[in-house]
Design a protein around this nucleic acid. Sequence first.
DNA 1: CGTCTATTTGAATGTACTCAAAAGCGGTGG
DNA 2: CCACCGCTTTTGAGTACATTCAAATAGACG
Lengths: 193, 193
Amino acid sequence: MYEQLMEHISRTVPISKSEFDLLKQFFHPRTLKKKEHLYRQNEVCRHIAFVNKGCLRNYHVDGKGDEQIIYFAIEDWWVADLQSVFQQIPSMFSLQALEDCDLLVSSKSEFEQAFEAVPAFEKFYRLKTQIAYTSSQKSVVEKTETAEERYIKLLKKSPSILQRVPQHYLASYLGIKPQSLSRIRKKLSSARY
Amino acid sequence: MYEQLMEHISRTVPISKSEFDLLKQFFHPRTLKKKEHLYRQNEVCRHIAFVNKGCLRNYHVDGKGDEQIIYFAIEDWWVADLQSVFQQIPSMFSLQALEDCDLLVSSKSEFEQAFEAVPAFEKFYRLKTQIAYTSSQKSVVEKTETAEERYIKLLKKSPSILQRVPQHYLASYLGIKPQSLSRIRKKLSSARY
DNA sequence: CGTCTATTTGAATGTACTCAAAAGCGGTGG
DNA sequence: CCACCGCTTTTGAGTACATTCAAATAGACG
């Protein structure tokens, strides 16, 4: 149940078995059935979760009703709207399971207690947040490329995601309509063979 | 010299005068003349800086030679490529002064010492990084809007930036060409009057 | 099997781009 | 003070990428 999280944290910061045993109490197993939500847009996000198993999408619905997927989360990802959790404000995002999922969830106060109890965990969190921030900036940069280039990049970087996720979700992630993705795929397949 | 930083930090976390006195030693005044760089793409970023005065742009040059501005920084902003600083890897970004600037700069090791010496500062940093991350995600969402909508939003949200920054830089920030921004402005001005 | 959803295809439209050139603006030197 | 230069902004014309609306085909699930 918790080995995966231990393994995950120790890839970033050194953490002893006893420190980790302290940490475990702040995380609780939870399952999500396919299509269930962990949090919803316009509601306060109550949990920070680690993905033991499954696949989810974090998405935003804009004023015109269009969905934009911000990221897909699979095994070993963290999911939450941090701003919503920690500032107790409504979230701009929804998180939905695309497959049945096994999570380890933690509340705001538990997470904060975890920082207190295990300094290595606060350091871990600080480093992770920083990486998340810089990755997010990178994705801003990538948005200037054409959808076709972004799709090719996705093919190379995350082929596993492509196999797990329906195409219209990939389109939403790439910031285009399903029709456009279909056309791009057609163009690429005819170009290659 | 340091009052502004003290003021800035205490807006986020409580910090005593004596804690702040400890912190000061890790930050050094530095000026940048207009057009000078603090760090450059493909080089390791050596400093984290707080802007006491001035205006800068953080930008990326892509494979086609096109510039994309990620953010403008003015008074009370932090500037750095955190991933580059802390992981000692080449930066994807360059930081250039758009006006003569007064900064307070800190190196990687000084910054890390500051975390050790003043726990409130680590907490401050963690919260700030988190906000930066969530803001960056918001900007990903906003990228799906048309350039016109983003320009109008910028007008409302940061009119001060518009007054300080040449138009072609605003275009680069919005992810469009200067010609397109000019056309958008023309359209808006005729629509309004 | 039938229904519901996802994907593909077609045709017309719109937003921003490219290339090109003109007009505006700011600073420098004669 | 004016002339000139370099850089920014504007304008024009044609183009590319992705969109919309619409419909057909394909797949998934009960």
